[in-house]
Simulated assay, not measured.
Amino acid sequence: MSQVNITPLADRVLIEPAAAEEKTASGIIIPDTAKEKPQRGIVVAAGSGKKDEPMTVKVGDTVLYGKYAGTELSVEGNDYLIMKESDLFAIINS
C-alpha cells in the first residue's frame, strides 16, 4: 500500500486498484488488450464523511467496487481511483 499526499473530501475514498490478473485459473496468459479492469483494491485515503454520515471504510481496507466506478488518476507514477463511498459494494474481511 502506498503513502499519498491526497486527502479526499467528504465521503470520497482514494483506492489503489489490485493488479489485473495475468493468467487464468488454467494457466493461460492473458494479453494486455484482454485484461479485465480490477474490481478490488485497497483504501489508501478516506475523507471525513458527511455531516450526519460517518465513513464506514478506513485506510487499509480491501474493498470491492463496480467495474466502471470512480475517476482514474495518476500521482507520482502510481494509478489510483477516487470515488464516493456509496460506489463501494463491500469490504473484504481477511
Rank of each mutant, 00 (worst) to 15 (best):
S2W: 08
S2C: 09
Q3M: 14
V4I: 15
N5D: 12
L9C: 04
L9N: 06
L9T: 08
A10H: 09
D11R: 05
V13E: 00
L14R: 00
I15G: 00
P17W: 06
A19I: 03
A20V: 04
E21H: 10
E22L: 08
K23I: 08
T24H: 04
G27N: 07
G27V: 02
I29Y: 10
P31K: 05
P31E: 05
D32C: 09
D32A: 14
T33C: 01
K35H: 08
E36H: 04
E36C: 00
P38H: 05
Q39N: 13
Q39C: 13
Q39A: 09
G41E: 08
G41P: 00
I42T: 12
I42K: 11
I42L: 04
I42E: 07
V43Q: 01
V44R: 06
A45G: 13
A46Q: 00
G47D: 02
G49V: 13
G49E: 03
K51F: 14
P54D: 09
V57P: 01
V59C: 01
G60S: 07
G60N: 05
G60M: 12
G60D: 11
D61R: 11
T62F: 03
V63D: 01
Y65D: 12
Y65E: 07
K67I: 12
G70W: 02
G70K: 04
G70D: 01
L73G: 12
V75S: 08
N78V: 15
N78I: 10
Y80M: 10
Y80V: 07
I82F: 07
I82G: 13
I82C: 14
K84H: 12
D87Q: 11
D87C: 09
L88Y: 01
F89Y: 05
F89L: 06
A90S: 14
A90L: 03
I91L: 01
I92K: 02
I92R: 00
S94P: 03
